[in-house]
Design a binder for these strands. Structure first.
Ligand SMILES: Nc1ncnc2c1ncn2[C@H]1C[C@H](O)[C@@H](COP(=O)(O)OP(=O)(O)OP(=O)(O)O)O1
Length: 592
DNA sequence: CATACACATAC
RNA sequence: AUUGUAUGUGUAUG
């Protein structure tokens, strides 16, 4: 939560993460949060309207920091329970799943089944129309039946909006920490409704299409109509169903609309819901366009994906505006840092669209405009003569000669607008440096909620597992924490809530070893030293200012009567002594 | 190897 | 000051 951009944006009270959690006393914070769980009365949410992409506005509901903490507590226990019951091809708001997975699922289904009639569904004002009582019932059906938890969730949902009179029993705040989880819970019955007749039944024989008899016999022996073949891919309230004919698509839309309206009290925007033959027209999903086109070989179709043009258009216009602002930079240093920001914006766009087969073609349309805008803006900033003569500061340089983004730029000899400053050659990166990456399907076994799933994840990313269970060593009831709390003569300013959090990260960084003697530290002897205790409250407890030590090493380091020779006599190695002296030096220097 | 902080995208 | 969940990239520090 503290890493969130909004952590210093208050709700209806004035409280922020920095002033009211991190800088506060550890025990006080714990107590305040625990108190919330006695009789939970959440604050109202603060209403802020932000512009949406389509010109309308989005009403945010910003909870107070304490309410965010409480919501996070509840989210973290509910999530594993819910996850086990979510639909496998729901990709929104879920760990380790992404838009890329959703997109590749769509193309994969279409390619392998040959079905090319697609329904694009859109639920109006989704978060704002979630029905509270229905939601609680669905949670119950998920097996979440603890009255206390359900009452707290109900309270969160009903805590009205500041400055708005009407208290309704509709909606979960856009901005609430549990809202995305609740949204997926709420649509799970819909997932089941869509998939239970066909997709779920066919799980074992995935994709084997069309060759079964038209009539199946149910248990009663009564002939049953063969279910309409259909596959659902959902991302939050945005969903796509792939089926085999226009007629069937129409039937399904009819059924789905009725179900959503009658059972979930949601409106399927009929005007926005479209039925498309992806062999003749593209669908739009998650910022991507997708259609099938004839392949080079006579028969068969291949997938083509690309960015939605007008969305990309808008982004590029924004980008060009930013680039033009470069000419207003105060000095060369801010110019460089602004170029880096421009570069990360360009990289961001490339990164999102590199999974599209036609991404490169789309980017090339804007390429030249962006390059020249950048060149002119930098030249304007530094004056016309900076682009003339032998040692031009502003110049076109080959990408592989730039000193920034080396890993990327070294693969290209395209010229880029560059700025030379000291030893650096800073290039404005190019939209055309987009390289198609085949989007991957989500591996259903790879989830953070099982031991095996976590292992698969680590091996795929070629990472090593975390060595320590930080919550065991540093949790509120852990030995190291109790010992610290028992220590009476500690300075309040240093030992605030942030310290309790960050000492765990420092310990992990130090690999559980003492920064003085290099030996492992057992849980009962961990102490965390402030390298420079005189920094401001915001800086003292940064991980970079903390060092994990043995309690004894820590003591000896602070005990100035122990001279170098006495330390050696005590059995410290020469390198350990050096480290002790180093720490002492830093303390002495900074206390001046 | 780790964390923290910028940017991007989806909803 | 524009909140949240998720994904991805880059830079910096040890
Ligand atoms: N920036 C955001 N912050 C918080 N929640 C968001 C944000 N963007 C989207 N959401 C959540 C709340 C939305 O109800 C839900 C679906 O988003 P979206 O389809 O874009 O709008 P919407 O369903 O609220 O209105 P509509 O589709 O009628 O325009 O995702």
């Amino acid at each position: 939560m503290k890493g969130n951009k909004g952590s210093d944006t208050p709700g209806v009270d004035e409280k922020t993460m920095r002033t009211d959690i991190l800088n506060k006393d550890f025990k006080k914070v714990l107590k305040e949060v625990k108190n919330q769980f006695q009789h939970y009365t959440p604050n109202m949410v603060r209403r802020v309207h932000i512009p949406k992409d389509n010109g309308e506005t989005r009403p945010l509901g910003i909870p107070t920091i304490v309410d965010r903490v409480v919501q996070e507590c509840i989210r973290s226990v509910l999530e594993p329970i819910c996850e086990a019951q979510f639909f496998e091809h729901s990709y929104g708001f879920r760990q380790w799943r992404s838009t890329e997975h959703a997109l590749s699922r769509v193309t994969d289904v279409v390619q392998k089944t040959g079905y090319h009639w697609v329904i694009e569904g859109d639920i109006s004002k989704f978060f704002d129309t979630v029905n509270h009582t229905k939601l609680i019932k669905i949670l119950w059906s998920f097996g979440i039946q603890d009255r206390r938890i359900l009452m707290m969730i109900k309270a969160m949902l009903q805590s009205g909006v500041m400055d708005e009179i009407i208290k309704s029993d509709l909606g979960t705040p856009q901005g609430g920490i549990i809202s995305p989880l609740l949204a997926n819970v709420y649509l799970t019955p819909f997932d089941n409704f869509v998939t239970r007749e066909y997709e779920r039944k066919k799980l074992r024989k995935e994709y084997s299409s069309g060759q079964r008899s038209l009539i199946l016999r149910g248990l009663s022996g009564k002939p049953r109509i063969k279910p309409i073949p259909c596959y659902l891919i959902r991302y939050a309230d945005d969903w796509v169903v792939v089926t085999n004919s226009k007629k069937n698509a129409e039937k399904l839309v009819y059924k789905y609309e009725k179900y959503l309206r009658e059972t979930l009290k949601l409106t399927l925007s009929i005007t926005k819901t479209k039925i498309t033959n992806v062999r003749s027209k593209a669908i739009e999903f998650l910022g991507y366009k997708y259609k099938q086109v004839r392949g080079k070989a006579e028969k068969g179709y291949i997938s083509r994906t690309k960015p939605i043009e007008d969305k990309l258009d808008k982004k590029i216009i924004e980008l060009l505006k930013d680039i033009k602002m470069l000419k207003k930079c105060k000095d060369t240093e801010t110019l460089i840092s602004d170029i880096n920001i421009i570069n990360s914006k360009i990289r961001g766009l490339i990164n999102y669209y590199q999974v599209t087969t036609w991404g490169s073609e789309s980017m090339k349309k804007y390429n030249q405009r962006v390059r020249w805008a950048a060149y002119r803006a930098i030249r304007r900033r530094l004056g016309a003569k900076s682009a003339k003569g032998k040692n031009k500061k502003v110049d076109w340089m080959r990408a592989n000669l730039c000193t920034n983004l080396i890993e990327l730029h070294s693969n290209y000899t395209t010229t880029l607008p560059t700025l030379k400053y000291k030893e650096h050659v800073i290039g404005v990166t190019d939209l055309a440096f987009i390289k198609f990456q085949q989007p991957t399907l989500f591996n259903q076994m790879e989830t953070p909620f099982t031991k095996e799933g976590r292992e698969r994840h680590l091996t795929r990313l070629r990472k090593r597992p975390k060595q320590f269970r930080l919550d065991f060593i540093f949790g509120a009831d852990a030995m190291a924490t109790r010992r610290l709390l028992a220590n009476k003569k500690k300075k309040k300013r240093l030992y605030n809530f942030e310290f309790y959090l960050n000492r765990a990260y420092a310990f992990n960084r130090d690999k559980g070893k003492c920064r003085i003697c290099g030996k492992e530290i057992a849980p009962h002897e961990i102490e965390t030293h402030h390298v420079n205790p005189n920094l401001t409250t915001e800086l003292v407890n940064r991980v970079s200012n903390l060092a994990s030590l043995h309690a004894s090493c820590h003591n000896d380091m602070h005990n100035l009567t122990l001279t170098e020779t006495l330390l050696l006599a005590k059995g410290y190695t020469t390198t350990s002594v050096k480290k002790i002296l180093n720490f002492r030096n830093k303390l002495a220097m900074n206390s001046l």
